[in-house]
Every structure is written in C-alpha cells, then in structure tokens.
Design a binder for these strands. Structure first.
Lengths: 144, 144
DNA sequence: ATTACATGTAATCATGATAATTACAAGTTA
DNA sequence: TAACTTGTAATTATCATGATTACATGTAAT
C-alpha cells in the first residue's frame, strides 16, 4: 500500500503556482508540468480550494495561492487532498473474538500505538512549509 | 489509503501464541481469535516465519515464537508482513515534465521529505516490543 | 449576444491491492 | 492407513487510484 500521489501532485501544483506567479496557472498548464490530465488537476485544485490554500473561480483562468508560502505546511496540503484519515493510517482488523483475552483487548491496545506512529509521521509534515520546498527547487535549479 | 491489517493481525497472532504458550496454537485456533479464515493466518504466519519471528513446521500442529517477546519490535512485525516498502509509504507521481523547473526537481526535493516522515513513523514502531503489547493486554484483562 | 475558453463535476474504465474462500498437495503422528 | 496440519495456489468480491471523456456552468472580449 502507498499513500496516493494526490499529495505529491498537490505540492507540485502549489509550488508551480508560486514559481509561475507572474503568469497564469491554468489546469492545462499545471497538467503539462505534472504530466497528467487537466481534469485530475482540477479535482485536486478543488480540494486545495476547499482547504483555502488556493483561489480559483469558475470561468476565470488561473489559480493563485490563498496564503503566504511560509504559511502553508506540507501537513496542510496532506489534509487538504485527503490522502489519510485521522487515526486511519493503519487498519486494525475488526471483529476479533471477545471470548479470547487477546481478541478482547487487541484493538484498544493497538489503537494508541498506531495513532502515535501516525502522529510522528505527521509531525514531520507539520514542520515543513511550501517555502522550504520552493527554496529547495530554486537551489537545485541554480546548481544545474 | 490505509496500511493493510496484516500488521495488526500479525501482532495479534504473536501475542496470542505467547499467551497460549502452554497450549497449541494452530492456524484454526488463531483464526478463531482473529476471526478470519485459517488460510489467511497461515499466509501471515508464513511471512512471520520467513522473518524468523516464529517457528512452524509442515504437518506439525502449532506455531511458537522464535525469539523472546522483548526481542521482537513492532517494526520487526511490520517489516515481516510487508505492508509498506522502504521509502514507499508515500507515492511520488512519475514522469513530471523535465522542461519545467518544478517538474525537473520535484521528485528529488520531495523524496527525502517523504522518507523522513516515513522514518519518523517507523521509529515509533521500533521503540515498542511485543512485550509491551502483551503486558498491556494483561493489564487490561485484570481490570475487567 | 455570440464566440472562445476556463473551471467544476460526474461517469466510465483499467489496474492493482486486499481479504475471504475453496481446494489440494505434502508432511506428521497415532 | 487414517486423521489432521501446514503450505500454497486459484478464485472471487470489493475498493481506491488515476486517466479519460463529456458537458454544464461561468467569464470575457469582440
């Protein structure tokens, strides 16, 4: 299993909107960079819009960031594109046998552990912003 | 997306083998506690065996732990049941456009971030052993 | 107002993973 | 030999993903 690429595509989209801020970032333009279908981009942009990370309007070409780059964490993007639900990174099997000591308690024992692991992962995402991403891209671009 | 329940089932199996150590833990017995099909249990036990966490032999009823409880971390189980590959918790979209500054660098920029997030999650799993799980179950059992 | 073009969104499709189930070969013990 | 177990493959239903097509809706320029 793997977390949907909607997350990496969401980051790509936002970074490109920023880098292309002097131009107009249509879904077709963004799709050309991501290398996918414009409808896929519009779907993801719709999610970013619901999360108030981006401004887009029907009929008007182009998407813009709704916040400062440094105010958008990767966790914000992650939540926006809905790739992992709260406490559901891991699946705990359901209906274990309540007649058995292990079956009776396994869910309650495991759940906080899985939640802690998920939160540790998400903490890393909270610690980074799109500004970090864009700066890194800019650095790599200079070197090349 | 969610990580396969093979992981929680694997933990369940190992904990139950320990708690039932005076008895014989056949795949049918374990399946009764997990509440699934014995063939599912045998599949997972096969993975735990490959990882040398468990001893089982064809034709001979029952599985036994191959290590001390405190020597089996949840990370060991997680790797054994193969639920997430190294560096592949997240998916990075492929074939971004190399003609675009963002498309050109996004993969190299994102990859270490995703890896760091995954490692943070896995660090939590490394910090806990089956002994912790079994002790927690025992405590809960006393309270009830 | 008509034309051209953009976004929003639903429907369809192929693909791949999961988990349950069935079936049976092969090993073990009484 | 009979009864039982593990090992494993094949089949199935279900679900998420991502690509694609289609079209309604919205905007702007002429």
């Amino acid at each position: 299993m793997s977390i949907s690429s909607r997350f990496s595509v969401g980051i790509h989209i936002l970074a490109l909107i920023e880098i292309n801020k002097s131009g107009i970032s249509t879904s077709e333009f963004l799709a050309g960079s991501v290398n996918t279908n414009p409808a896929v981009i519009r779907k993801i942009i719709g999610m970013l819009k619901n999360a108030k990370l981006v401004k887009v309007r029907p009929g008007i070409a182009g998407a813009e960031l709704a916040k400062e780059l440094s105010d958008i964490t990767l966790f914000d993007v992650y939540k926006a594109v809905n790739v992992v639900q709260e406490k559901e990174l891991f699946t705990v099997h359901d209906n274990p046998n309540p007649e058995c000591p292990v079956g009776r308690h396994i869910q309650n024992t495991i759940e906080p552990i899985f939640t802690a692991a998920q939160l540790a992962m998400e903490k890393v995402l909270r610690s980074l912003t799109l500004e970090d991403v864009v700066k890194d891209i800019a650095t790599k671009e200079k070197i090349c």
